[in-house]
């Protein structure tokens, strides 16, 4: 479906319930979220590496809302062969062994079978951005805290471009992203969560992306207040 026809008109801000937040949002089941995230970056001129929807939920009504994992789409970066020209330091080899072990265990748990063998896909290098995306699934942010939490709190998009700016950020997630080779990270709030995009390329703010996000995720935010 085209984005416009698939998005219901202007729903009131909805906040999910911790544990299974998507259940309370008929417009944002996970299949729909996945399609929207894919549409957002597959059709973009820019080379986005991933997109994540951080879902707002309430633990109890006396506490601030929490942004937890809603869904994510990992596209990957174009130039994956860069690493092939890099030297394989002992640290790199140790880190790769750790990542492959974790992926092997996750594969085994998901599939319910023992995995192994030299041809197993997990024996392929686990890139920095794959790892960053994977560990993102374990993270959550209190409203006002961290890059997604700040975007949610301020109701304004946050767009950070450049290694230096990411490294100098007060937000741990921005510094972490920079450490895993990302050069651009963007957080755009919605009524019920935050859309985050990351790229290993330098991407500067465009109205086009903001508009696509607005259409796909049906936002009511001040696009000028960045």
């Amino acid at each position: 479906p085209t984005p416009r026809s698939s998005v219901s008109p202007a729903p009131a801000p909805v906040t999910g319930i911790a544990g299974d937040p998507l259940k309370s949002m008929p417009y944002f089941n996970q299949e729909s979220l996945q399609q929207r995230l894919q549409t957002l970056i597959d059709g973009a001129r820019e080379g986005w590496t991933y997109a994540i929807f951080w879902q707002s939920s309430v633990v109890d009504f006396a506490s601030p809302s929490v942004l937890g994992w809603g869904d994510g789409y990992y596209k990957g970066e174009e130039d994956k062969n860069k690493r092939k020209t890099a030297s394989f330091s002992p640290d790199f080899i140790t880190e790769q062994a750790h990542r492959k072990k974790v992926l092997r265990e996750l594969n085994s748990l998901i599939s319910g079978t023992q995995t192994g063998g030299e041809n197993d896909a997990v024996d392929e290098e686990v890139t920095d951005t794959e790892w960053f995306f994977l560990i993102s699934m374990t993270q959550s942010f209190v409203n006002g805290s961290g890059l997604p939490g700040l975007a949610m709190y301020s109701s304004s998009p946050i767009w950070v471009t450049g290694t230096e700016r990411l490294a100098a950020s007060h937000c741990e997630r921005a510094r972490q992203a920079q450490g895993f080779g990302l050069q651009t990270i963007v957080c755009i709030p919605s009524a019920n969560g935050v859309v985050e995009l990351g790229s290993t390329e330098l991407i500067f703010q465009t109205a086009d992306l903001m508009n696509k996000v607005k259409v796909l995720f049906n936002f009511n935010i001040d696009m000028g207040a960045t």
């Binding site: 544990g19 299974d20 937040p21 998507l22 996970q30 996945q34 879902q55 937890g68 994992w69 809603g70 869904d71 994510g72 990992y74 990957g76 994956k80 062969n81 092939k84 992926l103 996750l106 594969n107 748990l109 998901i110 896909a121 392929e124 794959e130 995306f133 994977l134 699934m137």
Partner: peptide, 30 residues
């Protein structure tokens, strides 16, 4: 994994499957 919230479990499954497809369906590092 069984204790993971459904959204994370679905995302993890999709990520692992797509990664496997990507690796097995493309010639490496052309």
């Amino acid at each position: 994994v069984a204790d993971l919230p459904i959204a994370r479990r679905n995302s993890l499954t999709r990520f692992l499957e797509k990664r496997k497809d990507r690796i097995t369906s493309t010639a490496p590092y052309q």
